[in-house]
Design a protein around this nucleic acid. Structure first.
Lengths: 157, 157
DNA sequence: GGCGGATTGATGACATGTCAACCAGATGGC
DNA sequence: GCCATCTGGTTGACATGTCATCAATCCGCC
């Protein structure tokens, strides 16, 4: 903390670029997803995680961990999605405290309708703008940062 | 939209890595910033944008544009920051409707106290984990995506 | 000069996210 | 078997962000 090493010009530029991209990309993807499919990004993430799962259902805590959400956030969000008929809650046979979220037929229809457009948007605004080398670099670098953050978290707590 | 081109494995992995990094990095940086300086990331962004400005003050709309925030969001956030004594609002001489946000002495002290630690965190969790080539790639790629999104926005509207 | 439409910023209602408290059920030591 | 403790999930209060609306002012044009 003493004698801070500031960012040099390149680093500064990359950091700012990253944050700007983050914000703009997010806005645009959310905007298109809402316009074309009537879903928010969090909605879409919940639905697609569920859809990828063998049985279309997951323990609440399992889903929360995958999404890096707090249980509370997930619980609130699910009650809203439940009211819209996209998911249901079921009791968990194995653990009396537990709850399981399941995709409804309507929820499944919603993701399937949304997915092609959303993937296309991700391509259009990000993936197709990058060279293969850049994709590889992004892949490597993001995973390294993620590993660093999760290892550190694990070892410190 | 017809015949969607899904992401191949590499692309998928990069996209997931990006989103995971985004989330984890954000959480960690926000956590440290709050713990060490008592500021949220939005607070810090407002303060550091103001601090970089020659006169420590900016038109509200100018600041909103730089930050890619809605005016409404900025206005709400400023009233909260104003109550904490970090900024003040002034009338704008040039435009009777306008308002100018100015950093207070306390606001200046807050950013200056927060900056070294925050930069160090950005280094520790991101920049110092990347090779020079990766920094350059990140710089290039993020700016290309940003340009694409802003050009498109400009030409469509 | 003055009218009509655009722009600036504030505001209130509402959606979403966070945090702390809580309950029910599981788990482990004795 | 029983108590203390832990865990999974829910809930309510509150912070934050979004959206639509509003009043004041500016600007272009007659």
């Amino acid at each position: 903390m003493e004698r801070p090493r500031w960012l040099d010009e390149r680093e500064q530029s990359a950091w700012r670029g990253y944050r700007r991209m983050r914000r703009l990309l997010d806005l645009e993807l959310a905007r298109e997803l809402m316009r074309d499919a009537g879903l928010s990004e969090p909605d879409y993430d919940v639905l697609s995680d569920l859809a990828e799962t063998p049985d279309q259902r997951l323990r609440l805590s399992e889903l929360a961990d995958r999404m890096l959400w707090s249980r509370s956030r997930l619980s609130h969000h699910l009650t809203r999605m439940q009211q819209r008929g996209l998911v249901t809650r079921e009791e968990c046979a194995a653990d009396g405290r537990g709850a399981v979220v399941a995709l409804t037929a309507e929820g499944r229809r919603a993701v399937e309708a949304a997915a092609p457009g959303h993937v296309a948007a991700v391509r259009r605004h990000l993936i197709d703008l990058l060279t293969p080398d850049e994709i590889a670099a992004l892949d490597a670098l993001t995973h390294r940062v993620v590993d660093h953050l999760t290892d550190e978290g694990r070892s410190l707590r």
